[in-house]
Design a protein around this nucleic acid. Structure first.
Lengths: 306, 306
DNA sequence: GGGTACTGATACTCGCGCGGCATCACCGAC
DNA sequence: GTCGGTGATGCCGCGCGAGTATCAGTACCC
């Protein structure tokens, strides 16, 4: 009888029994198992003692399974198969063939680089599952720190120690305003011309650095903007602009496919810049699945200067 | 590294690893497992070597799970739980608390004793599953011999060696005939009065002995019956009688709740007798679940003389 | 900064139990 | 009867798991 932990048997006993049940023949089973027949006899006997049940009927000529043995065999089969798959599964995980990667992103990422990356990644690594969630920059930074996500597409506005980053793109923000707005008649605008117009912005807590940089740009232009509404994700700002609640910032990439009631205009002179960055923890070596994702993302989008 | 069979680890290693992963602490896990800490350290290290993967990050202060470790843990949990349940499941099977019993029956059984037996059995043994199938006598005898069913309710007409039986009831057959039939006006009939009437019977192959006994009864009454149709299960004969295709035999128990277009009449004088018997293999001791079923069946229906 | 307490890893020994070989007991075929 | 084949049993060696003692590194304390 083996030691305990709560299991009155060892893997050995179960495998041995299964083999005997398959062959219904101790010697043949022993040969398959590459052990001698007496050892097999004893192991099966031990299992029967441990379980307090006759698993096999030993007649002088041949062996038959009892109902208890059959039930054991049926419950055993999937369990042993599951255990047998463990090494291969872990190898696949280590090789980056399987696994899952939690990825967070912002609206700008989904409007630009993300679809291409996702398509390419799925093509190259079909067995790695991605868990995607839209999330503001500040929440992504916290989630990266806590290990809740493996990597994120976000807009940093300060150095991010403890993170490794890859700059994917930089875009100057323009202005989205109602098509009926007087300034919409102009091909491009300057910040200071927007002094009287209410603004729709994202909540400051979602990216304080970028938020403050926007305000600083206004201040440099000699303007104090009026924040009429806050909304997130930024793409929803289109609805507010369309409803005439104000104007908002947006990058050209995000300004594709807009309804006719709104107009996008570039900014001349100082303008807030959005920087899309892929970031992941620098503290631990990326798991293979994450490494595979990072490789695809960085390969399809060569780095820009920070 | 333990011996092989294809599993590069032993149950021990898995349980030990799970315990460490739970506590994230070698000493506490060792205490729970009632072994010394060094043994635990070595076992986990062996598992990691065997799987070729780092399962735990050992920092000097505390232990953390790696992605590989987490995956192993997730696949392990249900497998170990399944293995832990094996002893209790086998005990339950041995005690007759679980298991399944394949039971065959005929229409007469379902019309009489079976519903009561099933209700009582389910009340007493809720965890034993019954697999019920309506099947003619001859098929039940073959299935009992082959071990395809554990017991059957049928109508033997010859000694059944290799079976143990319990006689549940005996009933004289009466005649079911269309309500519009001239003989339906009489309160009871004699066999010979049915000479001119076509009969609906079950296929002879389904119970040759009983079939022949019916013909013998006719012959004793000086009549050669005309078999118009054969049908099974017998209860479906009601439809044929109702359609005016002929008359058929039936026991009073089966003749409950008949549509008004048919009439049941008892037979005076010689009449075929149906004997309902519960039978099971005499060759092997009944499995606990079957024994439980037989106990209920025989207890609720004390034996009749054969 | 050195002591202390804690972590997990290592060195060594001990003894249980697995597995091997040889053999037995029993059955069926002929 | 003999012979071939089944699974069980006796016995022995030794591998390996577990225990004790100890080491090595870190965090925290004053």
């Amino acid at each position: 009888m083996p030691r305990e932990y709560q299991y009155p048997f060892e893997l050995r006993h179960l495998v041995y029994f299964r083999e005997v049940a398959r062959h219904l023949h101790f010697r043949k089973a022993a040969e398959t198992l590459a052990i001698a027949q007496p050892a097999l006899s004893r192991a099966v006997a031990q299992l029967e003692t441990a379980l307090g049940a006759n698993l096999l009927d030993r007649t002088r000529r041949g062996v038959a399974i009892t109902p208890a043995g059959r039930q054991l065999l049926e419950t055993l089969e999937p369990l042993l198969r599951g255990l047998a798959e463990i090494p291969a599964d872990l190898q696949a995980l280590a090789a980056g063939e399987t696994g899952h990667v939690r990825v967070a992103f912002t609206g700008l990422a989904m409007a630009t680089v993300l679809p291409g990356i996702l398509g390419e990644f799925h093509r190259r690594h079909p067995r790695i599952r991605l868990e995607l969630s839209e999330s503001p920059t500040s929440a992504q930074l916290a989630a990266l720190q806590a290990g809740d996500i493996a990597c994120g597409f976000f807009h940093p506005d300060a150095p991010t120690p403890a993170l490794r980053t890859h700059v994917l793109l930089r875009e100057r923000n323009g202005v989205l305003l109602p098509a009926a707005h007087p300034l919409a008649a102009r091909p491009s605008l300057r910040l200071r011309e927007l002094a009287a117009t209410p603004f729709v912005l994202f909540p400051r807590s979602h990216n304080p650095g970028f938020y403050d940089r926007i305000l600083a740009a206004f201040a440099a232009a000699g303007v104090t903007p009026r924040i009429a509404e806050e909304i997130w994700p930024r793409a929803n700002g289109v609805g507010l602009v369309r409803a005439g609640l104000g104007v908002t910032f947006m990058t050209p990439s995000e300004a594709q496919h807009l309804p006719p009631e709104v107009a996008f205009r570039a900014l001349q002179g100082p303008a807030p810049e959005s920087r899309l960055v892929l970031g992941w923890s620098a503290e631990t070596e990326p798991a293979p699945a994450l490494a595979a994702f990072l490789a695809v993302a960085t390969a399809t989008h060569p780095p820009r200067k920070p």
